[in-house]
């Protein structure tokens, strides 16, 4: 709504480019047939090198600069390891070469989208090691999201230790995922508003009933007030301020809850049809659920927030 005021013209222009590309090359129909729609075109924009240093051929931008663009990837339900490749990979690998990256973060059992990866990064006991895709065995595991499949990763080689700051990389992954979740939630809201305006029951569009209006308004409030936590977390991550982990957890938890609420509301307003393959809605529902547990579940981040705020020293003012 007014949140655009939080971003610069350049940041919004990058997002608009990404949006245009995804509208053209990642339409909902592509989610049913392609594994990586729009990736080639996004790569053409330099999107997957956006955080890499200019001397490595990247765009040298900061995390805050791509928050609106990441939101667009959520809004389009873009499949594939976007955050892993464009964000976590850039932090861990430097980004000299353009590779597709999958990540197995701590606290998670499975690596999402590992079928598409050139490199699989496994983080265990605070250390990251990278494995060429050819050196690992992937076993599919059930998850909620058809466009974000999960894989158990079995390694048989020691892999290559990565020297970069693992904490910073995972934190950026959580913030970037939160940005995607905001985009997912915004799409769920707008598509549900459109449906509620068109579908009639009891002789009126269902969107004219107070019960439907008020549920959607509550979801809109949740999204509207999750978004600033996401850009705040990107700023403190970029500056490596004290409180950066706390802010990342606040962003991830709030965005996960907003997207889950938007999903619940979308399904409730659509009724049984929202539950089925007839509509595209299910892709965004699934994305809201699957990203909510990526880079730490909502509950994990709430626990970290409690430790940082109530047991820590939560001064706010400069």
């Amino acid at each position: 709504m007014m949140m655009d005021a939080a971003f610069s013209a350049d940041q919004l222009a990058l997002a608009a480019n990404v949006r245009d590309v995804l509208r053209a090359h990642c339409p909902p129909a592509a989610l049913r047939s392609e594994r990586r729609p729009g990736w080639k075109q996004l790569a053409g924009l330099g999107f997957f090198q956006v955080l890499s240093p200019e001397e490595d051929g990247g765009l040298g931008l900061r995390l805050i600069d791509v928050v609106p663009a990441l939101e667009e990837t959520g809004r389009a339900c873009l499949p594939g390891p976007v955050v892993e490749t464009a964000v976590v990979g850039a932090y861990l690998l430097g980004g000299a070469e353009p590779v597709t990256v999958a990540v197995l973060p701590p606290g998670q059992a499975y690596a999402a989208d590992a079928d598409l990866a050139d490199l699989v990064v496994v983080v265990r006991d605070g250390a990251a090691r990278s494995f060429p895709a050819a050196s690992v065995r992937l076993s599919p595991r059930p998850g909620p999201d058809p466009c974000r499949p999960l894989f158990e990763v079995t390694t048989e080689t020691p892999g290559e230790p990565l020297g970069a700051d693992v904490g910073a990389a995972l934190r950026a992954g959580a913030v970037a995922t939160a940005a995607q979740l905001v985009g997912v939630a915004r799409h769920l809201l707008s598509t549900t508003v459109a449906y509620a305006g068109a579908r009639t029951q009891f002789g009126a569009p269902i969107g004219s009933f107070q019960a439907v209006k008020h549920q959607l308004a509550d979801a809109a409030v949740a999204v509207e007030f999750a978004a600033p936590l996401v850009w705040r977390a990107a700023v403190t991550a970029d500056k490596a301020l004290a409180g950066a982990d706390r802010d990342a957890s606040a962003a991830k938890a709030a965005a996960g809850e907003a997207a889950t609420l938007a999903a619940r509301t979308a399904l409730q307003v659509h009724g049984a049809i929202g539950y089925t393959d007839e509509l595209d809605l299910r892709f965004w529902l699934a994305r809201a659920w699957s990203l909510s547990s990526a880079y730490g579940t909502t509950a994990h981040h709430r626990e970290r927030l409690r430790a940082a705020i109530v047991d820590g020293s939560p001064r706010r003012y400069p």
Binding site: F225, A250, R302, R306, R316
Partner: peptide, 18 residues
């Protein structure tokens, strides 16, 4: 309590953007 603290912060950030 931690949740309230974060939400007050969200309201603050939102207000600065507004």
């Amino acid at each position: 309590a931690a949740r309230c603290w974060v939400e007050a912060e969200a309201y603050r950030l939102h207000t600065y953007a507004t």
